[in-house]
């Protein structure tokens, strides 16, 4: 297939189907994330960069023999590996008997949050999540450094930025009604992650999606009046610092890094407070990084138009 637009859309569809399969496999949080990230943000970014590169792939000769050989070897290794696996869906596999039971049986008493995924994510393996937030931050830094636009271009081209879809009245009106709801939903997901699927990451992505939708319809300069690029840059860092700061406070209060038990007199309350704060940190970083990445891609488009 040489039309990259179709390729990108199909990969978005693949992600969406994956998300529904994850749902079927009881992984509600994962499904939620895959839908918002794989089908949402990732597709959006791919489309944004397609705008900057040519949409059609050139016809090229492949070098399929070596690739085929590598892939077949990998496949053989994988299939070989599957032969001794515990069967799908069995309850007595080692995965279900060794570490996981404690999460399912004790987490209500130790952390007091019904969504076990949230308690593992933010507390038992909270450090992984800090790392994950840092990964997002790292990507943000990378994109900012690579797609930097000089101040001069920004100012000179300011008047030239038309919103992509300014003429679409229906879209604009519908979006005006939708965007507040999207942002509200993001906040709901942010603070309801303890009880249902959701949490900082999903909320951040949804929040960013709302702002991105606004930017697409009303133009970059309009949205940048509210969300200044420099401010968002600070927010990307602030989220990580909030997360890490909670950990350091735990240390100062006598516990280990990220041991929320020490945040309040009652360990369970401490855990609640800790999870709330770190999820907020994740949400802030994710939302601002997603926004800044999108803005950078859009600026690049503007720059190209301006140069022409």
């Amino acid at each position: 297939m040489s039309d990259l637009f179709a390729v990108v859309m199909l990969s978005g569809i693949y992600s969406l189907i994956s998300a529904s399969l994850f749902l079927d496999l009881d992984a509600v949080d994962v499904a939620f994330t895959e839908a918002s990230v794989g089908a949402g943000i990732s597709t959006l970014l791919m489309l944004a960069s397609l705008k900057l590169v040519s949409r059609y792939q050139k016809k090229t000769r492949y070098k399929p023999i070596l690739a085929f050989f590598v892939v077949v070897t990998t496949g053989a290794m994988l299939i070989y590996g599957t032969l001794d696996m515990p069967h799908f869906g069995t309850a007595d596999a080692p995965v279900h008997t060794h570490v996981a039971p404690r999460y399912l049986n004790e987490s209500m008493g130790e952390i007091g949050v019904p969504n076990v995924v949230t308690s593992v994510l933010a507390s038992y393996r909270g450090y992984d999540t800090l790392g994950e937030t840092l990964v997002i931050f790292t990507a943000g830094i990378g994109v900012m450094a690579l797609l930097m636009v000089s101040k001069q271009t920004k100012q000179e081209s300011k008047k030239l930025i038309p919103a992509d879809m300014q003429q679409q009245i229906i879209l604009r009106i519908v979006a005006k009604m939708m965007i507040p709801l999207i942002l509200m939903f993001a906040l709901y997901v942010q603070f309801h992650g303890d009880y249902g699927p959701g949490g900082g990451f999903q909320a951040g992505v949804i929040f960013a999606a709302g702002i991105i939708l606004y930017t697409m319809l009303f133009g970059l300069s309009t949205s940048q009046e509210v969300f200044k690029a420099t401010t968002i840059e600070l927010f990307t860092a602030a989220g990580v610092l909030l997360y890490g700061g909670v950990g350091v406070v735990c240390m100062l209060l006598g516990g280990n890094f990220l041991d929320y038990d020490f945040l309040k007199h009652d360990p369970v309350h401490g855990q609640h407070l800790g999870i709330l704060l770190v999820e907020l940190g994740v949400g802030i970083t994710v939302a601002s990084v997603m926004m800044i990445i999108f803005f950078k891609f859009t600026w690049r488009t503007v720059k190209h138009k301006y140069k022409k």
Partner: peptide, 13 residues
């Protein structure tokens, strides 16, 4: 998943 989107974003840039 988060790592994946981070890599994709950087790759696209």
């Amino acid at each position: 998943i988060v790592v994946g989107i981070a890599t994709t974003a950087l790759g696209l840039a």
